[in-house]
Design a protein around this nucleic acid. Structure first.
Length: 968
RNA sequence: GGGCACGUAGCUCAGCGGGAGAGCACUACCUUGACAUGGUAGGGGUCACAGGUUCGAUCCCUGUCGUGCCCA
């Protein structure tokens, strides 16, 4: 690295090179432990805590992560600068299914033995190995983004500590009856061979068919030509007919009323099944009669329960027909049934569909086939069609746990930002279903349940405890002798086959639900739990409100008796620039790392913040990123300008006491922006905060302040020059602070190289004073600050300037006049096609005393910026001059002979037209009695003022026209 | 079918009861001593449509059309 280092501090490099800066600053932050929670100098500071939504260890940074973590980082850096003891808790999620799939795919690609050949222990070893190799990828990518997490506290959902929390929670909920085992239909993934929860199922629209099947009525001779000999049922899944145990018709459907209670003979199978009346059947749909397969359809399951219909599973875990030796299926079937069973046994469900339809057709059982588009459940990981499947699984009684979680949001203990997401939350929570938490996987937290030989369950935190309970029970039941019990307790081999552990693991989201407290050391009573729980904000996307937010609320309230976070900020989804969801299959994914490489992390961050308006998706266009990279360059060069002009803040400099109007003006503008940015971040209006600081840096500081200051800075030494140098540097420092949460790298770099500093910008005090801690917070701090030798000084000290109060309307008026004058002269020059090289004179006609006083003060800068040769005063504008109206006074450019009189006349007429329109609008409003009577007084007053101003303007313009006439 | 958003400049988006804004793109001019990753000026919009409330509607309400998402 070739950095020019002066004797005071390093100089700014000529060109802004994000990659260099980012690499260097990452090291600086890491070495200085800047992001460590509980820094000694902040032990008396109020904590501010955010837990990161743990990315999957399998993952790599995508645009959603980039947005999510940028917003969290803005909050963390902002609060850290406000003096809080910030804990941004990082970590990763073991992501059960996703990770297991990655490793299995890897084994397959390398043509190594699969997981089943390998065995559980070996396979798990392999996954851990993989995690060790690539688990850092996403963490390093988060660091590249600038995430100011306390990396020393990184956690993993399968860490020892977190696993302990998982087991504890499972055992306690089981003991309370809130976790139980049940046999019911689950969403079964026939590819991954596991149950999944409702949330992991995606309903996809599929073009299929509706098959109309004839089921012969018992006691009649079936004939396709005799409609009275059968009932027609419509189905989208003909292959499940083998498991039909009923036919349902609507109770009010007159067509079928006399058939209710009678039996039909199931085609191909021969099973006698009942026709029942149930309002699940929709008379409008299909034939109005539906076949009921309780073991293979969620709705049919309910119908079956209502009518006491048998449940016959005819599909196995891999999605193949399962008929041979299937007692439920074969029960009460006529002769010859086993031959059919053998023919179709182990045929895949989709092949079976085709063959069964063919067979039905050949006997005349198919009435017709219609094309039919319907929703089909798919596994979100495997993308295979989900099979409703009857098995034993573990469930959480979510309904009970949801109650306090609903109440906490209703009472406002936890609020959603934007608020409308609360409705989504309530909607789901109030209709919550039991949560299926067992997965037939290996990678995850193995369920702490053991079974005896009769299938009795023993749940305990450790194997010893479970085994001892179990053995005690079986001794008592006289299944084994006390002697056998003792032997089995001591020797694992002896009890093998007698007591076995549940093979299944828990849903990944089970451990994620504990994240806000398990990462702090719970169930141990750590100081961190006391200090940092409940957390302050949770920042996440709406797609995981159910998966994660809701479950953290339930678990947090149940185990900690307090909500896990007070604010849930829900941000948008990042889409491509056409609004499509980014996905690998569509190939429209924008890789944030590529954007960082090309434009820098700061530019990407700023883009995301600037576009993060509440309640709206982000359609990301790279042109925006480029624009904000240019913004960074602009800032860089402004700082170079300050450096080249030897701008520095002297000791004891007090901006509020500045004498120069220009300097008072920039103090005024800085204070205004500081308040805007602060309020916007506090309200999670990231886009407003970003917009405010952007405008200030570019359109106020660079475009005007620096330009207006140039004559002074380039002129001879004077007290005014000294003050201006100080002010340029001071405002620059304020900018660096305000911008730091958004663009941490470039601001930290510039902070370092522009002056000798006491410490890092990341730890510098925010310009605006934060709120005082509440008595509760002070009490909590006293309890958790730990031993301290001396009173630690407050972290946030009032800087030399109070942005909360400072304002200077007089300075604003004066600089406003200068800006208006320059802008208007430039505008008219451009309109008149006066080349920049041509200098013109300016005559201020009939100037007020105020203007006469101001003009000489600003003569240099106005001449420079408006390309003028001289400025003079006169009672009236010279003949043939172009006349401008600046804040009600005439500014004339004597351009006789240069300008096109006709064009100038046109311009003036246009102006007069505008004034007329304004007068007319105001008149019509003021003439409206209802307006004067009903509108707010200040609105009416404003309208009067507008009218007066427009009238005055018109008068001056008419004079200008007169003068022009005389010239020609 | 139920619910939630959203239709504002060519594009990507702010704004949201009192005279339409930004960035990018576009046009013209400018290599002036921080910056061409720049400067100056400019063009461009019946704020989807139709009703209603109001003194006043891009903004609030209702409906229509269109788009997207979530849940059945």
């Amino acid at each position: 690295m070739n950095r020019a280092r002066g004797f005071l501090h390093p100089m700014i490099e000529k060109n802004y090179q994000p990659a260099d800066i980012e690499a260097r600053m990452s090291v600086v932050w890491e070495d200085s432990l800047a992001f460590k929670a509980g820094r000694p100098d902040r032990r008396d500071a109020v904590p501010f805590t955010i837990v990161i939504p743990p990315p999957n260890v399998t993952g790599s940074l995508h645009m959603g992560h980039a947005l999510n973590n940028t917003l969290q980082d803005i909050l963390c850096r902002f609060e850290r600068m406000r003096g809080r003891d910030v804990l941004w808790q990082p970590g990763t999620d073991h992501a059960g299914i996703a990770t297991q799939m990655v490793v299995e795919r890897q084994l397959m690609e390398r043509q190594q033995p699969g997981r089943r050949e390998m065995g559980r222990a070996k396979f798990l070893e392999r996954v851990w190995q993989w995690k060790a190799e690539s688990g850092d990828t996403i963490i390093n990518q988060l660091k590249r983004l600038g995430a100011s997490c306390d990396w020393s506290r990184e956690r993993f959902t399968m860490d020892e500590g977190l696993s302990k929390a998982v087991v504890k929670v499972f055992v306690e909920l089981h003991r309370e009856g809130l976790i139980y085992k049940d046999k019911r239909l689950v969403n079964w993934d026939t590819k991954l061979l596991t149950a999944i929860s409702d949330l992991e199922v995606q309903q996809l629209e599929v073009k299929g068919h509706l098959w109309y099947l004839r089921y012969p009525i018992e006691g009649k001779t079936f004939s396709p030509d005799d409609p009275s000999s059968f009932i027609v049922v419509a189905t989208t899944r003909p292959e499940t007919m083998l498991g039909d145990t009923g036919v349902a018709v609507h109770p009010d459907d007159e067509r079928y009323q006399k058939l209710v209670g009678r039996n039909v003979i199931l085609p191909l199978v021969g099973r006698k099944i009942k026709i029942v009346a149930d309002d699940y059947s929709d008379p409008e749909k299909g034939s109005g009669a539906v076949k009921i397969t309780p073991a293979h359809d969620f709705n049919d399951f309910e119908v079956g329960n209502r009518h006491g219909l048998a449940r016959i599973s005819v599909i196995d875990r891999e999605g193949c027909l399962d008929l041979v030796d299937n007692e439920d299926y074969l029960r009460d079937l006529p002769e010859g049934a086993s031959q059919f069973a053998e023919e179709f046994h182990k045929v895949d469900r989709f092949a079976a569909r085709k063959r069964i339809v063919e067979r039905l057709e050949s006997f005349g059982f198919v009435e017709r086939i219609e094309p039919h588009t319907h929703m089909v459940p798919h596994g979100d990981r495997s993308n295979s069609v989900i099979e409703p499947y009857l098995t034993d699984q573990w469930y959480v009684d979510a309904k009970t746990l949801a109650r306090p979680a609903i109440a906490a949001v209703r009472s406002g203990e936890t609020t959603f930002v934007p608020k409308n997401w609360e409705k989504t939350y309530f909607e789901w929570m109030e209709n919550i279903q039991p949560w299926c938490i067992s997965r037939q996987l290996w990678w995850g937290h193995q369920i702490p349940a053991w079974y005896g030989p009769d299938g009795k369950v023993f749940v305990a935190e450790t194997e010893e405890e479970a085994v001892s309970h179990a053995l005690g029970y079986y001794v008592e039941q006289e299944v084994i002798t006390p002697e056998q019990g003792r032997e089995m307790a001591l020797d694992r081999n002896k009890r093998e086959g007698f007591i076995t552990r549940d093979e299944d693991v828990l849903d990944t989201w089970f451990s994620s639900a504990l994240w806000p407290f398990s990462t702090l050391g719970w169930p141990d009573e750590t100081p961190e739990v006391q200090r940092y729980y409940p957390t302050n904000a949770l920042v996440t996307g709406f797609d995981i409100i159910f998966f994660w937010v809701a479950r953290m609320m339930m678990m947090g309230l149940h185990f900690m008796k307090e909500v896990p976070f007070s604010t849930v900020y829900i941000h948008a989804l990042v889409r491509d620039e056409k609004g499509a969801k980014m996905s690998k299959s569509k190939g429209n994914v924008i890789d944030p790392l590529n954007l960082i490489d090309e434009y820098g992390a700061d530019a990407l961050r700023f883009t995301l913040a600037a576009m993060a308006a509440q309640g709206r998706d982000i359609k990301l266009a790279t042109s925006r990123v480029e624009g904000y990279r240019n913004f960074a360059t602009k800032l860089w060069n402004a700082c170079r300008f300050a450096e080249m002009n030897h701008c520095a803040v002297p000791d004891g400099f007090e901006p509020a006491k500045a004498k120069e109007t220009l300097n008072r003006w920039i103090a005024h503008e800085t204070a205004h922006t500081t308040r805007e940015v602060t309020e916007a971040i506090e309200a999670y209006r990231f886009n407003d905060a970003a917009g405010s600081i952007y405008r200030f840096v570019w359109n106020v500081y660079c475009d005007w302040y620096v330009e207006l200051a140039k004559p002074v800075l380039l002129g001879p030494d004077s007290p005014a020059k000294d003050e201006t140098r100080a002010m340029v540097a001071w405002a620059r420092d304020e900018i660096l602070k305000l911008l730091h949460p958004f663009m941490p790298f470039i601001t930290e770099e510039l902070w370092e190289v522009t002056a000798r500093r006491d410490g890092l910008l990341a730890l510098a005090p925010w310009p605006l004073k934060p709120a005082e801690p509440t008595p509760e917070q002070i009490a909590m701090l006293a309890a958790t600050a730990g031993p301290t030798d001396a009173l630690v000084s407050p972290v946030w000290v009032l800087p030399i300037f109070d942005h909360a109060d400072f304002t200077d309307p007089a300075a604003e008026a004066e600089i406003g006049w200068v800006i208006d004058l320059i802008t208007q002269i430039r505008s008219v020059r451009a309109e008149m096609n006066i080349p920049p090289a041509t200098l013109t004179a300016l005559v201020l006609a009939g100037a007020s005393a105020e203007t006469k006083e101001r003009a000489p003060r600003w003569a240099d800068v106005i001449k420079r910026m408006a390309r003028l040769s001289e400025i003079s005063f006169a009672d009236r504008a010279p003949d043939g001059a172009v006349q401008l109206l600046v804040r009600g006074e005439v500014a004339a450019l004597p351009l006789k002979g240069v300008i096109d009189v006709a064009a100038e006349r046109t311009r003036l007429d246009k102006e007069i037209g505008k004034a007329d329109a304004d007068i007319k609008r105001a008149d019509s409003k003021l003439a409206n009695e209802k307006f004067v009577a009903n509108a707010a007084e200040e609105v009416v007053e404003e309208e009067r003022e507008k009218r007066e101003a427009a009238l005055a303007r018109k008068a001056k313009l008419l004079e200008a026209v007169e003068r022009l006439k005389q010239a020609s």
